[in-house]
């Protein structure tokens, strides 16, 4: 059962990711990203991380992709006659293929992967919370500041001019 699900989800994820890369239309690309996300969320569930799957869907599907779609609609960029690819195609494909090959090669040569321990800690909400608020409290605080400057940055970059103080 799990194996079948894995294959289905993996194919779904990769295929939709391919859609993001090759599709001419930005809207379709965003939809591809969305489907890819769904596949990933499914894989997360397979990996015993349903909470992460939920967060992924919330943040990405709920916010990021929605934002993308919103912006695409807002900017109304017509999928013009221009080709969607630049002339760097060959280079890019080569590098990408190289990366792929590296990944497969490393796996095929059995890069020494650590074996699974006997007991797996259950990733419950409580476990995550404990980690986040003890060990990783400092990065959590830092991320808070990061979100603050991101918010301020978006405001600065989008606010109307005449209210700014330099104008007086």
């Amino acid at each position: 059962m799990a194996d079948t699900l894995f294959i289905i989800l993996a194919v779904l994820t990769v295929a939709s990711a391919l859609l993001v890369v090759v599709n001419k239309n930005a809207v379709n690309a965003a939809l591809g990203l969305l489907i890819s996300l769904l596949g990933l969320a499914g894989l997360f569930v397979l990996l015993d991380a349903p909470l992460l799957a939920f967060v992924l869907l919330m943040v990405y599907a709920g916010a990021v992709v929605a934002l993308f779609l919103f912006i695409i609609m807002l900017l109304d960029t017509t999928p013009g006659a221009a080709k969607p690819f630049s002339k760097m195609t060959l280079v890019a494909t080569l590098i990408g293929a190289g990366l792929l090959f590296t990944g497969i090669y490393s796996l095929a040569h059995r890069a020494v992967l650590p074996a699974a321990p006997a007991t797996l800690p259950v990733p419950t909400m409580k476990n995550y919370a404990e980690q986040l608020f003890t060990t990783y409290l400092l990065p959590v605080q830092v991320v808070g500041f990061m979100l603050l400057i991101a918010m301020l940055g978006v405001i600065v970059l989008s606010k109307k001019f005449d209210q700014t103080e330099g104008a007086k």
């Binding site: 993001v20 890369v21 630049s86 494909t93 990408g96 293929a97 990366l99 990944g103 796996l107």
Partner: peptide, 19 residues
């Protein structure tokens, strides 16, 4: 790895900044 490579190719390949 496949996803990563696909994304990388996309970044280099596409012209639309949103994509």
């Amino acid at each position: 790895a496949v996803l990563f490579a696909l994304g990388f190719i996309g970044v280099l390949l596409r012209k639309n900044t949103l994509v």
